[in-house]
Design a protein around this nucleic acid. Sequence first.
DNA 1: TCCAAAAATGAATCTATATTCATATTTCGA
DNA 2: TCGAAATATGAATATAGATTCATTTTTGGA
Lengths: 201, 201
Amino acid sequence: MTEDRRARRRQEDVEEILDAALELFVAQGFHGTSMQQIAEKADFSVGKLYTLFPSKEDLFRSIQARGVQEMVTIFENVVDDDTPPLVALLNVLQAGFDFATTKRGIIRVEVAERLGRAMNADRPVRDLFMTRIRDLLDRAVATGDLRPLDTHLLATMLMGAGEAVVEELATRESADPYADIPDRIMELMVLPHLNRGEVSR
Amino acid sequence: MTEDRRARRRQEDVEEILDAALELFVAQGFHGTSMQQIAEKADFSVGKLYTLFPSKEDLFRSIQARGVQEMVTIFENVVDDDTPPLVALLNVLQAGFDFATTKRGIIRVEVAERLGRAMNADRPVRDLFMTRIRDLLDRAVATGDLRPLDTHLLATMLMGAGEAVVEELATRESADPYADIPDRIMELMVLPHLNRGEVSR
DNA sequence: TCCAAAAATGAATCTATATTCATATTTCGA
DNA sequence: TCGAAATATGAATATAGATTCATTTTTGGA
């Protein structure tokens, strides 16, 4: 029926617009992206955007919702209840990375928001941090404290893990939740890779 | 001398403005923050901002520069060349967290408060992801595959580590750099915590 | 083919905000 | 204490961008 085709076309248009908008939001942030730009990229008029979404804000929420939906579907295809947990874990990680690769989706618009054109407020600090950590890991491998491993990867992961924990804890109220976090990170991510039982000096 | 006091005051004003601006930028993004707001928060007039910084963009760069400077100083105080590398690593992590706590804590809380009106595109996806991962880790502990550990912490760290790697790789050009990342994450962060040598099924 | 209904368009409107600058206030040496 | 120089102020200006809506174009049934 005609109504069917109309609905289908409408949905196609929605998808195209969401794709274009996501790309722009990721690259330029929410405020940094204009409806004009989105319209141009998706090859529609500005007015059209407003026939499909009540507002820019709303368009943004649609992107969120679609991302969640896709992710849920992926999970459903990848894990069932009697997969052994660690196998399932690997599958889930794999699915997440696939998602990130194909959809560019697991990127923070919020972060991009701080990138005016290429400037993230704490990027320079992070880079400095990374360099230090990596350097120390290299030395630890050189002294034989740590087994040989990809120090760049480990440094990246340490940074990310640390940031995630900070962010997570900062949203709570607890007094000084940071106190032993560095120790626990060492314990979970570094000490398991000791060569000998003890640290050289 | 008079010139001295003037310079000192000027510097104090600069610091106050940078503090206010950083807080707002982190909470609302660069574009989301107005010079008006910065002025109000720092308790100066808008015009004053323009006597100290040629433009908003420039103000932002000053924040970056200051952050790097602070971090460099902290590192210098914490590590010297003959500290054993793994001890130094712990020190650096500790310093990083202290920095995060004292300089960022308040800011992050503000971020959290604004999450209602959140502008983070993938927060919902991340939460979903986290829940899955944690759930699987819990099961792995329950089956005895993994030694008892703080699964929430490990899940947070896995997420952060994964994101950091994705972000890091996404800025490069390489073809499909993601392929074996999930395996390597498992190897570095999960497998070391196996109870027995093997995974249950 | 023709026309009314539906959809799409983009110029015009309305706001929000970066930047300027005429004016007011403060400072400090004489 | 006084007033010129230095500072600070915030209303006015300029501009970008979200939203609207009168007009044009497309659609599909008669």
